[in-house]
């Protein structure tokens, strides 16, 4: 037997071996496979880093803002890293925006007992002080509603019936005022919320 016989004899090896050589690849000898696996692993690490470093804090901030309407008093999750300063600033602006319906902490408020409605607002007497000592209880005031006055229901939600006019006569309300004219005893309010009388609080 010579080399030519061997080469010809190869034609008679079993078909399964012929098929294997045509259809299969070495189990562990593929350098290309390892190279692509390494590249894929690096990409996964990059994506994970981006997610934890940037996307996740933004997501938490968004969730914090969205949940604020439902629970104003709940603390808003703040990011611990990333571009948090800028986002925190945006959050603070959002928290103090009148459009969002949040209380304006820098604006003083007072509790009034409404006597009767007028064209521009109503007359009332001071029934209690919330966060200001400008008035004494029992002081009579003329209340003028600002054009963009916000009417709130007792639970703090925006009152959708405000556009048709609300009769506060005889009710106890907490108002936030932006102007006070001592001579005419007039205040301009931008927020009105019905509350229970102070004696029962």
């Amino acid at each position: 037997m010579n080399g030519k016989d061997l080469f010809s004899g190869m034609s008679f090896v079993e078909e399964r071996l012929v098929n294997e050589a045509e259809t299969e690849r070495p189990a562990s000898g593929s350098f290309a496979w390892k190279r692509w696996a390494a590249i894929a692993a690096c990409l996964c690490l990059i994506v994970l880093s981006l997610y934890t470093g940037i996307l996740r804090p933004e997501q938490e901030m968004t969730e914090g803002i969205a949940g604020q309407d439902a629970a104003d008093s709940m603390p808003i999750p703040m990011p611990e890293g990333g571009n948090s300063a800028e986002l925190q600033q945006e959050l603070m602006e959002s928290e103090t925006s009148p459009d969002e319906g949040c209380p304006l902490q820098e604006v003083p408020s007072v509790i009034l007992l409404v006597e009767e409605m007028t064209d521009s607002g109503f007359t009332a007497t001071v029934a209690g002080v919330a966060d200001t000592d400008v008035f004494e209880i029992g002081t009579a005031l003329n209340v003028v509603m600002a054009e963009d006055v916000r009417h709130e229901t007792p639970d703090g939600q925006f009152d959708v019936t405000a556009e048709t006019g609300i009769d506060y006569s005889g009710l106890c309300v907490e108002v936030q005022f932006t102007e006070y004219d001592e001579e005419t005893a007039t205040i301009v309010v931008n927020s009105i919320r019905e509350v229970t009388p102070p004696a029962h609080r």
């Binding site: 004899g9 190869m10 008679f12 079993e14």
Partner: peptide, 11 residues
């Protein structure tokens, strides 16, 4: 026959 025998050996 010779080729088949070689083929069996090689397999």
């Amino acid at each position: 026959m010779e080729g088949q025998e070689i083929g069996r050996l090689l397999s």
